[in-house]
């Protein structure tokens, strides 16, 4: 489990416009490159979730919900209308309830 590292990537992408653009353009390539600069490593499941912008999975794995939503809106807003994104995010979150997001 490396909830911390998931949060770190989400936080980095969310707070930096250049990283946001690069990640949104090619998340898998961004994640591969970024992880090499880190001391900690993702689990295979976490790596796949961040490489595919899979907000439902990230939520289920215990990413911090406050930052996760902000990140999700930033990296999906060009592909999905906001209303649809909000509804899908909530539906996916509802399926798993309240995973512990303590790190």
């Amino acid at each position: 489990m490396s909830k911390y590292l998931m949060n770190k990537l989400i936080h980095h992408v969310n707070m930096n416009e250049a990283a946001e653009d690069e990640y949104a353009g090619n998340p898998r390539a961004f994640v591969d490159k970024w992880e090499k600069t880190q001391k900690l490593k993702f689990t295979p499941e976490e790596r796949e979730a961040v490489a595919t912008k899979d907000y439902g999975k990230l939520y289920a794995l215990g990413a911090h919900p406050f930052t996760l939503w902000s990140f999700t809106e930033a990296v999906w807003s060009h592909e999905k209308p906001r209303e649809e994104l909000v509804a899908d995010y909530k539906e996916k979150a509802a399926k798993v309830g309240y995973p512990d997001f303590k790190t």
Binding site: H64, P65, F66, T67, L68, W69, S70, Y89, A93, A94
Partner: peptide, 8 residues
Amino acid sequence: EVGGPKQF
């Protein structure tokens, strides 16, 4: 609630 099933 923010970022959970009941947000917004």
